[in-house]
Write a protein that binds this DNA or RNA. Sequence first.
DNA 1: TCAAAAGTGTTGCGGCTACACCCATGA
DNA 2: TCATGGGTGTAGCCGCAACACTTTTGA
Lengths: 244, 244
Amino acid sequence: MSVSGTYDKRAYEPFAVTVDLAVFTIRDGALHVLLVERGQEPYAGRWALPGGFVRPDESAEGAAARELAEETGLADVSGLHLEQVRTYSEPDRDPRMRVVSVAFAALVPDQPEVHGGGDAARAAWLPYRPASYRPLAFDHDRILADAHDRVGGKLEYTGIATAFCAPRFTLGELRQVYEAVWGAELDPANFRRKVVGTPGLVEAIPGAARLTGGRGKPAALFRAGSATTLHPPLLRPASEGTSS
Amino acid sequence: MSVSGTYDKRAYEPFAVTVDLAVFTIRDGALHVLLVERGQEPYAGRWALPGGFVRPDESAEGAAARELAEETGLADVSGLHLEQVRTYSEPDRDPRMRVVSVAFAALVPDQPEVHGGGDAARAAWLPYRPASYRPLAFDHDRILADAHDRVGGKLEYTGIATAFCAPRFTLGELRQVYEAVWGAELDPANFRRKVVGTPGLVEAIPGAARLTGGRGKPAALFRAGSATTLHPPLLRPASEGTSS
DNA sequence: TCAAAAGTGTTGCGGCTACACCCATGA
DNA sequence: TCATGGGTGTAGCCGCAACACTTTTGA
């Protein structure tokens, strides 16, 4: 931006700017990611993250929202959680040309339908198990891993977990979100106390209740609260080697 | 990336890709930021973040490291902390052309010299006090605020604070880093226990000691440890409105 | 001898973990 | 009446905030 010399854009090879999306959802209690199968070279037949070019009149955020709507078939993408992760700009990351890609992570509630087709390529929700579809096209393995790390970290100190849930949800469903993303089991009793005791995370819907799996006591229903940052954070269990 | 149609880059207006740097240091116990004064339109005479174009053969990270070396006059930029913050891509953020900018935050130890001149524009270390130089050129106010937020947050759960210090430092100096970035005072006793008790954050240099301000007991010297993430985190004091 | 900074001790509060235990429902 | 998940109670541990206090230096 603060270049002192001449401002001649032709002196530099033009860059293509794209967005790549890591779209996550919870299905059957397991974390799933939306992938598309490439139909052409390079990387034909490989799975890849959905994405596309940023158009001249839109921001990367706008392009990501547009692609998200196209790929998932959702009408109102405005309420969904869509967050920039980082930008990937290695000169050789695309063998055809110089492509700089802004990566986003999106969190959506479980979609009953498979999703309306946007692009021609086949798209599918796959369980988040990198070993089962690796290697992805381009540097998408790394992008997906970075996006997953980001989402897992943000669960600790923000309320984004509710973005995975329907407008009305039970605390058991919310707990499944944390368990699916972190890959760890949480104590239902302590989870409940923590979530209810954090102001702004969730709001109780008075009187409402719903059965979960046909069994057990009906659970009270909640809706997402207004809090953006959690104090104190809801830390994930230390998997190994915690300090002191 | 996963575009199914034709791959014609001429169908899209080319983007210029730049990097913008928020370079922080601690000087006299206060947080400072490196700014350059623009000599030409637009925003002539305004302060701006240093930065420049990404060249065809380098990544955004490479461009950021190169600009950092040029602007600060530092020879070995490799050991410094340089971290991507996010990418700014609003279509109208530069009135001249379509510019997508990848922002970075850099943490450097205090430089005695003013820094070798890179670009022609005047550059200076200014105390981090946004009201004193606002508005910056372009959308740099927001970029600088985002970078500061990122650095402040990362102090909590990583060891990057040592990036502000010389190779050998006292715990008082390290504490000044936290206080300067967070704008809050910390209890020296508790800070010491926390830092020393977190494995990998710092390593004691046996026997070494140094006076701090000419007064008081000489302080033991430490060097940066190898830990990247802190468990549990070193949380900043809740300024207001903590939960429960 | 005083001020200033380093470093150690100690106490109390609060959150979290780990259970044990009761409640409501469908099979 | 049993299995299942929701929800409440509670005891103990651990970390941290808030001090008091000692140590070592220069002025």
